[in-house]
């Protein structure tokens, strides 16, 4: 019996075809496994990146506090983005690189870098609630500063306040793009907050802000609830400006905003008693 080469070839062809089909199936399933692995890897990389972002934002904000402690204003000013917006207490809004430098070096520092002898400006940065945007390009943080200000033999002040910050990642480096510090209280050490309360710091004449204070609010004995940037972590309900209004006093600040309190200031005068509302 003579086998037809044709049929052999035909058989071989069929075998080849079958093998090829199998190969194609294997290939496509491998490709699909590969794309699943790819997706999971990319998701993991993104999650780890967000954790790293959070660590960097924490370091950045705490490092800010350590520079402010010692009034190293040039290092402070360098922590902000080019288009930053900064508002500290009642000093008004400072914009951009030039504004940030004017605020810290002039309004806060009075043209001097470093503490004056006998000066104290401890600025503890605590309790960060930080949220990095899913795309990893921006972030928000609420922090508080617990503050001891003093000038030996002249005055000592306890102070505390809330920071609501925004951050931006520029060229792979996290910077502060928006900083708003709301003072809670300024209490002279010798009297304490039950007996003495000083007003919020107002604008500096020599280094005026780019825009007036954006939110008028009361410091102690009045109170203000700076809007929480985050929704309730359990219910997800966002905080509204209306709620801040509902839970805040008006017209209870100790006195109209006075000159900034800082080491080197003359002994602060006692605030004028606030007329009853």
């Amino acid at each position: 019996m003579a086998e037809s080469p044709l049929s052999l070839r035909s058989l071989g062809g069929s075998a080849l075809l079958a093998a090829g089909a199998l190969g194609a199936v294997a290939l496509s399933s491998a490709a699909s496994a590969q794309s699943t692995v790819e997706r999971r890897l990319a998701a993991l990389e993104s999650r780890v990146e967000r954790l790293d972002d959070r660590a960097k934002i924490e370091n950045l904000t705490r490092a800010y506090g350590y520079y402010v402690d010692k009034q190293i204003w040039n290092e402070v000013a360098d922590l902000f983005s080019n288009n930053a917006r900064v508002e500290i207490a009642g000093r008004g809004v400072y914009l951009g690189k030039a504004g940030v430098q004017r605020l810290f070096l002039q309004s806060m520092g009075g043209g001097q870098i470093g503490l004056r002898p006998g000066g104290l400006f401890n600025h503890m940065i605590l309790q960060g609630v930080t949220d990095v945007a899913p795309d990893g390009r921006t972030a928000k943080g609420r922090w508080r500063a617990f503050v001891q200000i003093g000038q030996a033999k002249m005055f000592g002040i306890w102070s505390e306040g809330t920071y609501e910050n925004e951050y931006v990642k520029e060229g792979g480096v996290w910077k502060i793009s928006d900083m708003h510090f709301y003072a809670t209280f300024y209490a002279p050490y010798e009297k304490g907050w039950a007996q003495g309360a000083r007003p919020n710091n107002g604008p500096t004449r020599d280094a005026p802000p780019d825009a007036p204070q954006s939110v008028e609010y009361d410091v102690y004995p009045g109170h203000y609830v700076p809007p929480f940037h985050y929704p309730n972590p359990v219910t997800g309900k966002p905080w509204t400006v209306e709620e801040s209004r509902e839970y805040s006093t008006t017209g209870m600040s100790p006195a109209p905003a006075g000159p900034p309190i800082q080491p080197g200031s003359p002994t602060p005068a006692a605030p004028a008693p606030k007329p009853a509302q």
């Binding site: 080469p5 044709l6 070839r9 062809g13 090829g20 290939l27």
Partner: peptide
């Protein structure tokens, strides 16, 4: 004589195999 159809099949299968063989190192690389 092998007909055209069969040769096409062989060729097609070969091509798929060849593609698979090329794909293996690509997978290993990935």
């Amino acid at each position: 004589m092998m007909n055209i159809k069969n040769w096409t099949r062989v060729g097609l299968a070969g091509a798929v195999m060849a593609a698979a063989i090329v794909a293996v190192p690509a997978l290993a690389q990935s």
